[in-house]
Amino acid sequence: MDKMKATYEVMLALAAEMALDEILRKSREEKLYGAIDSALAEGDEVAFRLLTDELKTLQR
């Protein structure tokens, strides 16, 4: 029974970690979209390219 409890706790921790990772990824993605919009509005091609590259990497 203890082994099942330990396995359950590990699986629960993994699920929590996966949920947190997803929340952090979505938050970063939203910030990147805003920064990309700003870079476009300002005509900052370098920032635009860097930000879109990061976004592409994040979405893989």
Rank of each mutant, 00 (worst) to 15 (best):
D2R: 15
D2M: 15
D2Y: 14
D2A: 15
D2L: 15
K3I: 14
K3M: 13
M4W: 11
M4D: 15
K5F: 09
A6F: 05
A6V: 09
A6Q: 13
A6W: 01
T7K: 15
T7R: 15
E9V: 04
E9W: 07
V10T: 12
A13F: 05
A13G: 00
A15M: 12
A16E: 15
A16P: 00
M18S: 10
M18N: 13
M18V: 10
L20E: 11
D21I: 08
E22D: 12
E22W: 06
E22Y: 05
E22C: 04
I23D: 12
L24E: 11
L24P: 05
L24A: 07
R25W: 03
R25F: 01
R25E: 07
R25G: 02
S27V: 03
S27E: 13
S27K: 13
S27D: 12
R28M: 05
E29M: 08
E30R: 08
E30D: 10
E30F: 07
K31L: 08
L32Q: 02
Y33R: 08
Y33G: 00
G34R: 07
I36N: 03
I36P: 02
D37N: 07
A39Q: 02
L40S: 09
G43C: 02
G43P: 04
E45Y: 03
E45N: 06
V46F: 07
A47G: 06
F48E: 12
F48V: 03
R49Y: 00
R49T: 09
R49K: 14
R49M: 08
L50Y: 04
L50F: 01
L51S: 03
L51V: 00
T52I: 07
D53G: 13
L55Q: 00
K56M: 09
K56H: 08
T57W: 02
Q59S: 08
R60Y: 00
R60E: 09
R60C: 01
